[in-house]
């Protein structure tokens, strides 16, 4: 009985359960609704809006980064093709000029050879003509000499 007295005598006590219990339960339920509309909903809205904003921004940034990388790669390939194209054009032009040079050289050689040949032929013909004339004059001269010798005798 001593312990029972210690815990609160005849009225009350530590384990005195009465209408406080259901009323407290109702109070807590009401508090849940009040806090929901006063605290959890508004703060949740703000926090979740911000979280969405941040995650959207991150996604957007990631998209932009990948786009930039894609463009960079694109640019690199374009640069590569342009470089090879330029190389091709340069070597083509070199070949072309080489060919032209060779052609011109050949043409000039041929022409030179032809004029040389012509000159040689001309020289030859003139030489022979001169020789003919010379032999004819020698004939005439010898005939003249012969005639004179004959007449003087």
């Amino acid at each position: 009985m001593l312990a029972f007295n210690f815990f609160g005598a005849t009225e009350g006590g530590l384990f005195d359960i009465n209408a406080t219990l259901p009323l407290m339960a109702i109070q807590v339920v009401a508090l849940t609704y009040i806090l929901n509309s006063l605290f959890f909903k508004p703060v949740g809205n703000v926090v979740e809006k911000r979280e969405k904003f941040v995650s959207n921004n991150i996604i957007e940034a990631k998209n932009k980064l990948s786009e930039v990388k894609k463009l960079e790669a694109d640019l690199l390939t374009q640069l590569q093709t342009a470089r090879t194209e330029a190389q091709r054009i340069v070597s083509e032009a070199e070949n072309e000029s080489d060919k032209l040079y060779k052609e011109a050289l050949e043409l000039a050689n041929n022409e030179a050879n032809a004029s040389k040949e012509k000159a040689r032929l001309e020289i030859e013909s003139q030489t022979s003509a001169a020789r003919d004339q010379l032999s004819k004059q020698a004939d005439d001269l010898s005939e003249l000499i012969v005639n004179r010798l004959i007449l003087e005798k």
Partner: peptide, 11 residues
């Protein structure tokens, strides 16, 4: 108070 804690626990 035991009433409060029992109310919470029953909820």
């Amino acid at each position: 108070d035991i009433n409060t804690t029992i109310a919470l626990a029953l909820l």
